[in-house]
Amino acid sequence: MLLKHKHSLSLRLSHWLNVPIILMLVWSGILIYWAYPAYISMPAWAVEKFNLHHRLAEGMGWHFTLMWALIANGIFFVIYSFVSGHWRALVPTSRDLKNFIPFILSDLRISKRKFPETDEYNPAQKVAYTGALIMGFGAVITGFAIFKPVLLGWLTALCGGYQTARFLHFAMMIGLVLFLIVHLIQVGRSGWATFQSMISGYEHEQD
């Protein structure tokens, strides 16, 4: 039988480590945010239900410990991508950017145009994955800007000031969550073999 080697061990490791790290960073970020919910608020019963009140200290405990895990994993992934050449598969070319919208329209069956199935990531995947990486990087930068606005005052100023940096940090989180939702939907559409290949690294191609 023929197997397709889709994902290297380093890639899978980095990917699956990211799952708990990012989920807990988002959750603890929400606990921190809820001490002063400046942008989005929820009805009292929802806040009650999710038990978001008075958990700032706990949120900070998670956030300021796990942030280093995210950074370490990010550095590991970037180094891996350059050493292995994986970045070439990931970063969209100008052609991918041009095909980005048409591909999505085709994928949603809005346009009739067909894109051939290839081994490569499709244009939407490349834009989404690279976008998620950039948002992760942005979350770290804006995170430092609000974590140490005196020591890293230059970075805070670069992000437009303390409150702007806080807003941008929040926006990066929203972006990452939206990515995650689309990512999960696409995995669901793609099916078990795709999900399984992210764990074993291989996908069964033909008998």
């Binding site: 039988m1 023929l2 397709k4 080697h5 889709k6 699956w16 399984q196 764990i199 291989y202 008998d207």
Partner: peptide
């Protein structure tokens, strides 16, 4: 993307190891 030729039994074993790793994680 690399293709490898393998036996179904080996593929089965590969998957089992991967899932054991996943559950340990």
């Amino acid at each position: 993307m690399n293709r490898i030729e393998t036996e179904p039994a080996i593929w089965k074993k590969k998957k089992r190891i991967a899932w054991i790793c996943a559950f340990s994680f």
